[in-house]
Amino acid sequence: MADDVKEGLAQEEIALTTSPVTSLWILGVGLPLAGFGLLGFGVWKLGDFPWDEPILQAVHATATATLDRLAQGITRLGSPWILPPLAGLMAIALAALKRWRSLLYVVLALAGNTLINIELKDLWKRDRPFLWDSGTPRPHDFSFPSGHAMTSVAIVVVLLILLGSSRWRPWAVLFGVLFVLAIAWTRLYLGVHYPSDILGGWLVAIAWTVGLSLLIQPQGEKI
């Protein structure tokens, strides 16, 4: 009898221990991938969603010379090409602290994010919108999913995971959300991405960075 009670308590303890991890796999990896799959199927079958162009036109209706300059400046912060130097700086800092799991996570998360974006764009081959001339050089690669959206989300999620329960985390969440939304706005404002490109980029980046963190578990190292 006593053994049965102990076994039951042990099973409950294991269930409580694994439940948050399971939830993260479902909410942080499974659902984003499912959402991206639906978006990808829609892009493949429809080309453009009915709500893509109206949202772009609505954003374009707010255009001013000041916003033009602001969008062109902010959008550079989300370029996939800022990842190598940023990853390098973070790698140096983590190596100095001897946080090897965190170092591995940063390198794989950010480098993998760029490679995944390149492969997905080449797979879908979605042409970029061209509803107006924004006055900025138009990217020559494909549109879906947005590399800027993936980059911004990857950076924010990686930083939040490394910060763990640090007192700086609420501020990182606030500025991270503002950064991600600002980058998304610039891509729509400049007319170089559909809204579905942005959403697809967010979902892929979340699934990749969260899934990788669950495998490597860098949050186990206190930063």
Score class of each variant (00 low, 15 high):
51 W>N: 01
132 W>M: 02
212 L>R: 09
174 L>K: 11
28 G>C: 09
176 G>S: 07
80 P>D: 05
172 A>Y: 04
96 A>G: 13
78 G>H: 04
166 S>R: 06
4 D>C: 09
144 F>W: 05
38 L>H: 03
9 L>P: 08
199 L>D: 06
66 T>E: 15
43 V>H: 02
181 L>Q: 02
142 F>W: 12
53 E>F: 13
71 A>H: 01
139 P>Q: 09
156 V>L: 02
116 I>T: 00
148 H>K: 04
197 D>F: 04
121 K>Y: 01
211 G>W: 11
40 G>S: 12
163 L>C: 03
66 T>C: 09
140 H>F: 10
32 P>D: 10
5 V>A: 14
98 K>E: 12
179 F>M: 04
68 D>C: 05
216 I>W: 09
32 P>S: 10
187 R>A: 05
187 R>Q: 10
145 P>L: 00
211 G>F: 10
169 R>Q: 12
220 G>D: 14
41 F>I: 15
179 F>C: 02
180 V>C: 04
120 L>F: 03
184 A>F: 10
110 L>M: 10
84 P>R: 05
121 K>S: 00
151 T>A: 03
10 A>H: 12
31 L>H: 10
182 A>V: 01
38 L>S: 07
189 Y>K: 06
5 V>Q: 13
185 W>N: 04
107 V>T: 05
19 S>Q: 14
83 L>Y: 05
167 R>M: 11
165 S>E: 15
147 G>M: 09
193 H>T: 02
195 P>L: 01
9 L>E: 13
158 V>Q: 06
88 G>T: 12
86 L>M: 09
31 L>C: 08
168 W>G: 12
93 A>E: 15
126 R>D: 01
11 Q>S: 14
8 G>A: 11
194 Y>F: 15
136 T>R: 07
103 L>K: 07
49 F>V: 00
43 V>D: 01
214 L>N: 03
133 D>M: 04
90 M>P: 00
59 V>S: 04
26 I>P: 13
194 Y>I: 03
12 E>W: 10
219 Q>Y: 14
153 V>L: 12
70 L>G: 13
50 P>K: 00
97 L>Q: 14
158 V>E: 09
118 I>R: 11
42 G>D: 02
94 L>K: 01
116 I>P: 11
164 G>T: 15
55 I>A: 10
147 G>W: 06
139 P>F: 06
54 P>S: 06
131 L>Q: 03
112 G>C: 06
31 L>A: 13
221 E>A: 05
30 G>S: 10
209 T>N: 12
19 S>L: 14
141 D>V: 02
105 Y>A: 06
126 R>H: 02
64 T>M: 07
127 D>K: 04
13 E>L: 15
71 A>D: 00
17 T>K: 11
113 N>C: 14
100 W>P: 07
72 Q>V: 13
155 I>E: 02
39 L>K: 03
3 D>K: 13
125 K>D: 06
1 M>E: 14
71 A>G: 02
11 Q>G: 12
101 R>E: 09
31 L>S: 10
156 V>A: 03
47 G>W: 01
169 R>L: 10
112 G>F: 07
72 Q>Y: 12
200 G>F: 04
31 L>E: 09
149 A>T: 08
181 L>G: 01
220 G>W: 15
56 L>T: 05
136 T>F: 09
145 P>W: 00
3 D>C: 09
20 P>E: 01
46 L>D: 05
152 S>M: 02
104 L>H: 10
221 E>P: 04
83 L>Q: 08
66 T>V: 15
171 W>H: 12
